[in-house]
Amino acid sequence: MPERARKIRVSCVVNGGAASFEAYPMARLLDVLREELKLTGTKEGCGEGECGACSIEMDGALVNSCLVPALQAQGTKIRTIEGLAIGGSLHAVQQAFLTHGGAQCGICTPGMILAAANLLARYPQPDDAQIREGLSGNLCRCTGYMKIFESVVAAVRRAETRA
C-alpha cells in the first residue's frame, strides 16, 4: 500500500453556518458536502467539470465542487442548493423552476438553479444570450433548456415586479 496522507481539518461557512470537517486534502469538495456534511442536494454527473450538476457557490463565484479539493475550501463561504430557500419560502429561481417546468428528472436542477441564481446576481436583467452563456456549463438532458430559460426569465420578471 502506498503511504497514507493524513486527513486535515477544514473550517468554512456553509449556507450561512460554521462548518468543520475532516478530509483528505485532495478529497473532492463534492464528496465532503455529500458525505461529511450530508448535503446531498449537490449532485455528481461526471466528476470532470463538464456537467455542472455539482455547481455550488464559493465566495460568491460559481464553481464545480467536483474540481475543488477539500483543502481549498478552508476559510471560504459556500452556498449549496440547501441554502437557497429562506425559511419555508423558495428563492425566486426555485419558484420559477417549479411553475415553469424548469425541472424534469431534477438531477441537474440544484446545479442549474445555483448557476441561474449566480447569473442573476451578476446580471439582474440578462438577455437571451447571457442566459444561454451563463448556463452553458450546466447540462440538462431532459428539457432541451427551453423551460429553463423561461424559468429564468420568469424569475427576473418576479424580481422586477417586487422592486
Partner: peptide
Amino acid sequence: MRAYLPAYEMETP
C-alpha cells in the same frame, strides 16, 4: 473517483 485518495498530499505554503 478512481484515484487512491490517501496517497495524495497537499499543503498550503
